[in-house]
Structures are given as C-alpha cells and as structure tokens.
Design a protein around this nucleic acid. Structure first.
Lengths: 229, 229
DNA sequence: GTCAAACGTTTTGTATACAAGAATTCGATT
DNA sequence: AATCGAATTCTTGTATACAAAACGTTTGAC
C-alpha cells in the first residue's frame, strides 16, 4: 500500500479494468468512484492520467474517462509486437547473457518442469512470468527490458486466458527448454526464432485465443461510448 | 492551442525539456511554473503525470518532479530498440504495403531528393519524418505504428543533432531509395536489414552522435538530483 | 567544533469551491 | 407525434484551501 492515494487508486482501477469489471466504452464516473475509494476527485483524476498513459482508458476532453478494452484485432497487433520484442530480447540475450543470469534461467526452467509434473498451473504461470522477465533483463538493454515488460503486463489478462488451453503448458515448457539451450550455446538465431514463435499468435493458438476472447466479458469496440450513435 | 490548460502546459514543458532548457535532475518547481504559465498547480501536476508517463520527468513521491535526460548509454539503448522497431515495420511493410501508401513513399523519396539537391536540410528533415511515418503506417499494424511513433518522437532531439553531420543527408537518401525498392519488390529481408542499419547507431555514426551529445547541454545522470550526495 | 534535536519554513498531496462546458429535460411549434 | 430549442442539471476543468511530510536553520549538549 503506497502512501500516495493516487497510486493506490490507479492500481485498483487497473485491476478492475483488466479483470473486466467495466464494459468497453463505459465512462468512469469521477464522483461515484471518489466516494467508493474514499478519496476526492483530485487523486482520482491523477489515476486517470496514468491509466490513459498506459492505454487502459481514453480521456476525452470535457467528456470524461472511458475504459478502452482492445478490440480483437488490436490484441492480435499487440501480440505481434510482443513477439518481435521478445525475439529481439532473445537475440541479444544469446550474445550478452551473463553466467549468473543464465543460471537463474536454468533454475526457472527446472521450476517450470516441476510445476508441469505437479499439474500446478498457477505455479507454472508464476515461473513463466519469471522466465520472461529474465529474458528481458538478459538482453542487456534496460530500455528494451522496460518496454517489453510494459507490453507484457498489458497483455497479462489475455495470456491468462491462454494458459487454460489443454497442452499449452507442455508446449510452452518445451519451448523454454529450446530457448535455454540457445542461450547456453550463444545461438542467437535460434533464440530469436523460438521466442518469436513462442509468443506469436498463430495456427491453433489463434483459434484458442479467439474462443477465450469471445467468452470473456471484454467486448471489442474501438469507439468510446460517448461517440456512439 | 488546446482548450485544456493541462495539455498546453505539458506541450510547453515537453518542448522546454527536450530543448535542454532544464538541467538533468533539476526539480520542476510547481509554484514557480504555475505562475509562469498563469495557471494553478492542478493542471501543472496533470502535465507532470503525462511527462512522467513518457519518461521525460521522474516523479518522486513527496519530493517532486525531476527532469530526466537520458544518459548516453540510455540513448544508445533507445536507438537500438528504435532500429529493431523500424526493422520490423519494414519487414511487415514489404509484405503489406498498399499501392496508395507505396505511391506516397515514392513521392516522399522524390521530395527528399529535391531537398538534398537544394541543400535544404530543414526540408530534408521534414520529408525524412514523413518517410518514417509512412513506413510505420505501411506495417499494417496500428499498434506497432503507434509505439514506433512514440519512441521516434522521444528520440527527436538526438536525431536533430545527427542531421548536422556532413554527408549524412546523402547517405540517408541512398538508404531511403533502397528501402523504397525493397517495398516495391516485396523484399522483406532487405527492407528489414536496411531499415535496421538506417536507424542503428554504429561505426562512424556512433562517434558523431557521441560528439554532438557531449556538446549539447543535455547532461547524463541517471540519479534524480534529490538523491545526490 | 561537531552532532543532534527542535523549531519554523517550504512543498507536496488531497479536499473543496467555483466556473464553464456538456447533457438532459421539458415545453413550444409545426 | 416528432423536432427544435431554451432552461435546468450534471460533469469536467481549474483555482484555492488546508494538512502533513520533507527541508533548513537555529540552538543546545557534549
């Protein structure tokens, strides 16, 4: 819990938006939310600014803040960019990774294996997150790592949907192993290629994602509600 | 001029920071700036939020807003990411570009040629911006285009430094021609490779950039001034 | 002379007040 | 009955007021 109310409100709203508590295009009522969080409108508006910066809401002047769930095609676009960012991270990491970080990656892959054997999908989710954080850091480019993390975080709810799909965990683990080997041997081409495919939405994954997207309460609509006819 | 004061203040501050009007680590005094812009602290603080989101200032709780000029190595990192983003844009664009956009790219290259012949470096700068915007759009991925544009804008001051270097305009134009050809022939590998090298800071460009960086009044320091000993 | 505690000052973070721009309601007119 | 428009109500954007945290300075003890 931060001492700044604005940060707490941002976090709370972020969670609420990401978990689909608001419909797409819904207006965030300043007064009602201020009452709900027991704060004044000032920190709430600061939170709106931050949410707008990360693309979760759209601020329309003199109209208000509208939640902005990505349409399906936008989500696909984001995954395409994510795949490229991870591919670059992998390519650079294969050349730049330090023995210490490599050891951590190894440990994470082992933890992933354990999670798969135990059928612990939550545990796998955690270790998977860790794995990707390590790849970002291993790129040796802090700015790249930061940007990758930012987008990774934004795609979190959709990734969560994905993990439910049968057999996905095993496939993911196999790819993690391949990536680890590529890093160990300094094979940047393989690291790049496997990571791109690992993240990319294609083939069966596309259909799985589409199905879970439709089931979710995140509705696709690029127009803010204020603009609707 | 926007009707929202906060947006105007953001834009003004952005320009001031980018042009080096503030030293790195300098604290932005809310009261003094509010007086200077003839606004209250409220819209000023909103502007701070936005600037923090785009990385131009660092918001330290209970301490204030500190301007954050990238250190040299951070700038290099950003260029590395920019090169990769443009490379991806190029690769996708070679496959997806529409005849209409391709025609616009052609026109822009012609305008670049005219600017070089006329020795009009401002004109070249403008057309060069246009060229890259078109490449982003041609990628067919709006999210990618948006992110590329965001980073492109952030690197603007450094790119401006670069254009002063002798012979850079001619080299840039040659590369533009190569990229255009790659797009016309759908050669995604070439488009990717040329664009990466076009943007990448390497060889002579590295030294040129370092020299102009040192000359600029943008000082490298990753610590906020409040934290200094 | 140095260090630290206490006091006063400055500055941030939040609440509230107020003005101006949207949205809505309701009545008048065709 | 539908539509246009004026009046009313809400909501946003900004200013100001106030509380609490950080900062600086002075004073006192060793």
């Amino acid at each position: 819990m931060n001492t700044r109310m604005a940060d707490n409100v941002r976090e709370a709203l972020e969670q609420m938006i990401v978990t689909g508590e608001f419909a797409d295009g819904e207006r965030l009522d300043e007064i009602r939310l201020a009452e709900r969080f027991h704060v004044s409108r000032t920190p709430l508006r600061e939170a709106f600014q931050m949410l707008a910066a990360s693309g979760l809401v759209e601020l329309v002047p003199r109209r208000g803040a509208f939640v902005r769930h990505p349409a399906f095609h936008e989500m696909i676009e984001m995954f395409e960019v994510m795949a490229e960012l991870e591919a670059v991270c992998g390519r650079l990491a294969a050349r730049r990774v330090t023995p210490e970080v490599l050891e951590q990656v190894r440990a994470t892959v082992i933890a992933c294996e354990a999670a798969v054997e135990a059928g612990d999908s939550d545990g796998y989710y955690r270790e998977n997150e860790h794995f990707h954080q390590l790849i970002y850091a291993a790129s040796g480019n802090d700015f790249l790592a930061q940007e990758s993390q930012r987008l990774h975080k934004r795609l979190q709810p959709f990734r969560r949907m994905q993990l439910r799909v049968r057999g996905r965990m095993i496939q993911s683990l196999t790819e993690h192993r391949q990536i680890l080997t590529a890093l160990e041997t300094g094979d940047s081409d393989t690291a790049e290629a496997v990571l791109r495919d690992h993240v990319a939405v294609q083939g069966g994954k596309f259909n799985d994602l589409m199905a879970s997207y439709k089931q979710s309460n995140l509705r696709a609509n690029s127009q803010p509600m204020a603009m609707r006819g």
